[in-house]
Simulated assay, not measured.
Amino acid sequence: MSVREAEARPAGREPRAAGEVARRTPSRRLGRNRRTAGSWWIPWLFLAPALILFLYFKFIPMAQAISMSVQEVRPYLGNLWVGTANYSEILSSEGFRSATWNTIVLAVGQTAGSMLLGFVLALLVEGQTRKLTFIRSAAFLPVVVPIAVVAELWRIMYHPTADGLLNQVLGLIGLGPSGFINDPDTSLASIVVTGIWRGAPYDMMIFLAGLAGIDRGLYEAAVVDGASTKQRILHVTLPGLRPVFAILFILAAVRGFRAFTEVFLLTNGGPNGSTEVLMTLIYKLGFEQNRLGIASAGAVLLFLATLVLTVCVQMLRRRRVA
C-alpha cells in the first residue's frame, strides 16, 4: 500500500462515519419522540379522578342550573319552558334588590377589611425566626377552623345582653351594650367583622409570599437614600405587591359574593332581612319555597356578576402591565 493510498483511506472513512452519525441521530430522536408521545395519557390518568369529580359535582350541576333557570320546575310533573320569565320576576323583586345591596356591602367590607388587616399582619410577622413561625401559625388558625365553628363562636361572643363577651369589653370603655346580630342597624356590620377575622389570615399568607419576592436591594437603596419606613412601604412594598393585590382582590371579592354559611348560621338573613344576601335568598327560594326555577335564575345572575368582576379586574391588570 502506498503512502498516498494510506492517506486517502482515512480521509474516505471520515465522511462515511459522519454520514452514519447524521443518519443515526434523527432516528434516535424520532424514537425518543415516539416514546414521549406514547405516554401523553399518563398525566391525564392521574388527573382523571379529580376531573370526574369536578364534572359530576360542579359542571353538570352548573349546566342543569342554567337549564332550570328558563323553566318552571315541577317535580314529578315535568318542567315547563318559560324563557326569561324567571329572570324578569327575580330582577323585579324587592327582596332580590335588597339582597344584592347587602351582598355588595358585605363583599366590599370584607374585601377591604381582610386585605388591609392581612397586609398589616404580613408586615408584622415577616421574618425567619422561630417565634414568628409560631405567630404565623397561630394567626392562620381561623382559616383552618370550620366555618360552622367560627360562626358559633362569634354568635356566643355577640350575645346581646350585658353579660355577653363583647358587650363586657364595650362596658370597660364606657359604651352601652349592643345588640350586634340581633339589631338591624348593626347585624350586617357584625357579619362583616366576622368575615374579616376569618379572611385576613389567608390574605396575610399570600402577602408574605409576595413580600418574599421583592428584591431586598431596593430596601437597602431606599435606606441609603434616607427613606423612612412609611416611604419604603409606599414606594417599594406596595408597587412590588401589585400582582398580589390583584389576585387577592378577586379571591376576596368572590368570597364576599358567595358568603352563605356565616350569614345562615348567625342570622339566617334576619333580623327583618337586614342581612339577607343573594346566597341565602337563593337557598330560601329553592329549598324552602320550592321555586327552583327562580332560584336557578338568581344563581346564574350571581355567577355572571362574579365572572364580569373577574374579567374586568384581569383586563385592568393587563393594561397596567402593558
Rank of each mutant, 00 (worst) to 15 (best):
R255T: 05
L218M: 10
P10Y: 14
D225Q: 06
R9D: 06
W197M: 11
Y283S: 06
A65D: 13
A22Q: 05
K131H: 03
A139R: 03
R35A: 14
L309P: 12
E20N: 03
I104T: 04
Y283C: 06
L172C: 03
V3E: 11
L218F: 06
W154M: 13
E152M: 07
V308L: 14
R198K: 15
E20F: 08
G217A: 07
A6L: 15
L234Y: 01
V150D: 14
I214E: 04
I250K: 09
A246F: 01
P49I: 07
H235T: 14
D183N: 13
G127C: 02
R32H: 10
F180I: 05
V311D: 02
I147R: 14
Q64C: 00
L266R: 14
L175K: 15
M62I: 08
A50R: 01
R74C: 00
V192K: 04
P184T: 09
R317S: 12
L188C: 04
A227H: 04
Q168K: 10
P184R: 06
L53R: 14
N167Y: 09
M315P: 01
V169Q: 14
P160G: 15
G179H: 10
H159S: 15
A65P: 07
V308M: 11
A209F: 08
S137M: 07
A212N: 10
A17N: 09
L316P: 02
H235L: 12
T100D: 01
T275R: 15
S2E: 06
A148G: 11
L47E: 02
E152Q: 06
G95Q: 13
E276P: 00
M204Y: 10
I196M: 10
F287M: 09
I42S: 02
A322V: 09
D185L: 13
